[in-house]
Nucleic acid binder design. Sequence first.
DNA 1: CTAAATGCAAACAGTTTGCAGCTGC
DNA 2: GCAGCTGCAAACTGTTTGCATTTAG
Lengths: 162, 162
Amino acid sequence: MATRSPEDIEAFCRRAQDHWSKDGRRTQVRDILSRVVAAQAAPFSADELRTQARRIDRGISYASIYRTLGSLVEAGLLREIVGPNDRRCYTLIDSTHTGVSHIVCTDCEQVVPMNDDCLPLREGFLARQLGFTPRKMSLRIEASCEELRQHGACARRKQKEP
Amino acid sequence: MATRSPEDIEAFCRRAQDHWSKDGRRTQVRDILSRVVAAQAAPFSADELRTQARRIDRGISYASIYRTLGSLVEAGLLREIVGPNDRRCYTLIDSTHTGVSHIVCTDCEQVVPMNDDCLPLREGFLARQLGFTPRKMSLRIEASCEELRQHGACARRKQKEP
DNA sequence: CTAAATGCAAACAGTTTGCAGCTGC
DNA sequence: GCAGCTGCAAACTGTTTGCATTTAG
């Protein structure tokens, strides 16, 4: 699985910490969550974040997970999307990924972000013509895996963490 | 509020009944639900459907609502979308409306379908390039209402049913 | 010192399900 | 008659909340 570069992780972490320094407080829990979130190479669920964060601090609760995720979404650092089985997932909003589109594979339960920079422009324009000011945008493509269909297996299938 | 033409309602009803004649059974409950669904001028929630259906038959249950909605979605007669406050809504798939995009207004809690026929083509093509076969597609634009901002009121605000 | 953040457990909302009885064919 | 549908109530899942306690600044 692809990993994020140390620089990207570092940069994202700092953005999150900045956000909290301004708007609230920098705490241990938030620092841990920043680090874990910043390192995610793929879209992740609240549950996955909790599991990974608990490897660092066993006591981190769902309450903090959800409150933190909400805060990062509001701050524009994360995008909330609808993943496999209609479960919520989160993707980083980053220099390396700004797209609003993603593919949800029903075969391998994987979420694959897409880049399509002109989509928001085009659709945003249409929305404005209808008298709206667009705030968030998200294109979800539910799809099946061609690789799986042809070869009976798919390299993208997400592994369960040990 | 706009209403659907009797012909459109009739046509949609028949499609639903056809579906059930082939794949299952035509029942009283399903006929009522077909009629109510077919008449919806705007995207609707499971709850709204239930309320309206209960005006015809007081006994209709959530179980039937959800099972019926699921069946209609699977049959390609309805599209499931994420509406205001992340609640699920349903829109008809019809000769009068085939688009995959919709605006969710955070001010008036209204869902406005958009037509953008080339979006599925364009994005479907991109998805295929990545090795996926697209099955469903849905663009959600969360937006605020310009009319409300400027005039302090919005004609689109959904009225509570009596 | 004080306001903000946390963990816990309980509450919550929307949806799904198991089962006994009813209904269409 | 019998498979398939229905309503009911209970179960379920992911998320939110109230509150007593801890912690950052």
